[in-house]
């Protein structure tokens, strides 16, 4: 479904990605793990079109989206939940969700999408007229995921959804991600919480210093010696 081939990317003069290649198949839940600054978020930004790569290409369902505009990429069915959620704090929960359905294709199905996200996140339905700035950290993360779902994506990119949340909430969020994946949305998940990410995912890639250094099934990588040593202690 998603194929990334030999992608190099730069922030100014600084090379952040070195020949990244990976693929995600329809229906999969794939994790990208690795230390801080390894290039996981950068990889997501390349896919979303926020950072055009200097070489290599990104293909989604056979279409080249390497130099597409971010809004076109959303319209093709790829939606990213940025790190920290980045909800619009000055706007209401409902307005945040409406903005998630901004692209014309999604706007037509706004009502049914709202029903769907409210059934996954009932808490958001209770707070729909509240300003997003008044939500707790966990609720904001739920809103961010819900907002991304409003564009009816077939591929959901999640950047550190567990970041800064209490363990109990992390478990809830991960359960919701599993449910969303079970409903047929393919997921590419970036996580620092390596053990949970590996248990959750079908496959995972290990990223270090802007390169892919390992790949395997989630549980397979759990027993992978260097991963154990580096991330699980």
């Amino acid at each position: 479904m998603l194929e990334i081939e030999g992608v190099d990317a730069f922030y100014g003069d600084l090379q952040a990605l070195w020949g990244i290649s990976l693929h995600v198949d329809e229906g999969e839940l794939v994790a990208l793990i690795g230390p801080n600054g390894a290039g996981k978020t950068t990889t997501l930004h390349v896919i979303s079109g926020l950072l055009p790569p200097s070489s290599g290409n990104v293909r989604f369902r056979g279409r080249d989206l390497t130099r597409e505009r971010p809004d076109k990429i959303v319209a093709m069915g790829i939606s990213q939940v940025p790190e920290g959620g980045r909800v619009f704090t000055g706007m209401t929960v409902l307005e945040n969700l409406e903005l998630g359905a901004f692209i014309p294709g999604a706007r037509r199905h706004k009502e049914e999408s709202l029903k769907r996200v409210f059934s996954i996140f009932p808490r958001l339905a209770e707070r729909k007229n509240q300003r997003a700035g008044t939500l707790s950290g966990g609720e904001r993360q739920m809103l961010a995921i819900a907002r991304a779902l409003m564009s009816k994506p077939t591929l959901l990119l999640l950047d550190e959804p567990s970041f800064g949340l209490a363990p109990l909430l992390v478990e809830q969020i991960f359960a919701m991600i599993t449910e969303i994946n079970a409903q047929g949305v393919t997921v590419l998940l970036v996580e620092q919480n390596v053990r949970a990410a590996l248990e959750l995912s079908h496959r995972a890639y290990v990223v270090e210093n802007g390169r892919i250094v390992g790949e395997g099934s989630g549980t397979g990588l759990l027993s992978f010696e260097s991963v154990r040593r580096a991330y699980l202690g």
Partner: peptide
Amino acid sequence: AAATLAGI
């Protein structure tokens, strides 16, 4: 950036 990711 978040607006861009929402498809705006």
